[in-house]
Nucleic acid binder design. Structure first.
Lengths: 199, 199
DNA sequence: ACCCCAGGCTACTCGCCGGTAGTCTTTCAA
DNA sequence: TTGAAAGACTACCGGCGAGTAGCCTGGGGT
């Protein structure tokens, strides 16, 4: 019970920090700003986090883990490489769109993370690229894909999706699901799959 | 003559600022750092720039202008949409890779620009997206491209290329020209063009 | 030889913000 | 009813860095 309340408060701090770091940037936001928004004071934050930099890491790492998990999960599913790549891209896109502020903060504020946190996160990103490359290689092996350079293709794919943090707006022209589905179509095309487009 | 010397010094400040902002981030770099690296002192910088934020804008804006110019130039060239899109993507990729630090700084430090500078740059970016969409629409009209959603495709394309600022390393496996050429192939595939791949 | 001035420097101010020490209050157990 | 401990606050420190005021110096013109 006590722990639940504590965890809840921790979550509230994180929510507010995400919002403000996203809007004003990491260095453009003070701990007093976050505390004020929550109706508490700065020392309160220190009962849940060691400092501002740890707060930043706590925002970034779980989101990168989620991205990796999306691709890792899709990669181990049964099905053809085409089906699995579609699944991977769809789910990864959804993570990016659902956690848009966290993704944005990570890419913008990378330089403000502690070397240790950054190293951990970069290890996750390497796994991510590796999994994506692996999927592409499999598809080439079965003849479903036609790819000149799977490393470059994996980077291009990852970039195309990640980039959505810069332009996606919830409640815009396309829903989250539609965006994810269309991104998957574009991704399959890049992999050399002949994708029919709906009229 | 005097003006040339002044311009040269201005350029040296910019070079050093790019290097340090890229490595340490905007807020992680002090004007004293930049001055020290140049063997001068902080007030010297103020004889060329009104302040730190103006320095940042002076790094970002010309690079975004160059990106826009690359696409604008390709779009007005004679040739089929396929040829022009290839040209546009190739040249844009080269700009991103040649000016990698400037591009990185812009996307990371956007929040530190003055509202005025940001508005100017965002206007350029809108033109950029518009030109790219236009090229895609033309290709669909001639039947060369097959695209479900040209706005989304333009964003995906732009993202795929821009993202290169996060991973490209000069002197790596691929040269700048090779990278640009392969990116153009991937882009054309996304547009629905059947691109043969070299063995 | 002397003056002048421009280019650059030294030496400062001032506000900001991350982090902390120590106090107050509220609640619960005995 | 009281004591104690937890939880949160008030009030502070100290460093840092953008920006500035005013001085110094060396070189060209007279």
């Amino acid at each position: 019970m006590r722990d639940e309340i504590l965890a809840y408060k921790r979550e509230r701090i994180l929510e507010e920090a995400v919002k403000l770091f996203y809007e004003r940037g990491f260095t453009g936001t003070t701990l007093d700003d976050i505390a004020a928004e929550l109706g508490v004071t700065k020392p309160f934050i220190y009962t849940h986090f060691r400092g501002k930099v740890e707060l930043l890491a706590a925002l970034c790492k779980p989101t990168i883990e989620l991205s990796l998990a999306a691709v890792a999960n899709a990669a181990t599913l049964p099905g053809t490489p085409t089906e699995r790549l579609r699944h991977a891209i769809t789910d990864f896109t959804k993570v990016v769109l659902q956690r848009q502020p966290n993704i944005a903060i990570f890419f913008r504020e990378e330089k403000n993370l502690s070397p240790e946190s950054l190293a951990e996160i970069n290890a996750l990103r390497r796994q991510f690229d590796h999994l994506l490359s692996g999927l592409l290689i499999e598809g080439v092996a079965t003849g479903e894909f036609e790819i000149q350079d799977h490393s470059l293709a994996a980077l291009a794919l990852g970039g195309m999706i990640s980039w959505a943090y810069t332009w996606y707006r919830a409640g815009g022209r396309l829903t989250l699901e539609e965006t994810a589905a269309r991104m998957a179509d574009l991704a399959l095309r890049m992999a050399g799959v002949r994708v029919a487009i709906p009229a």
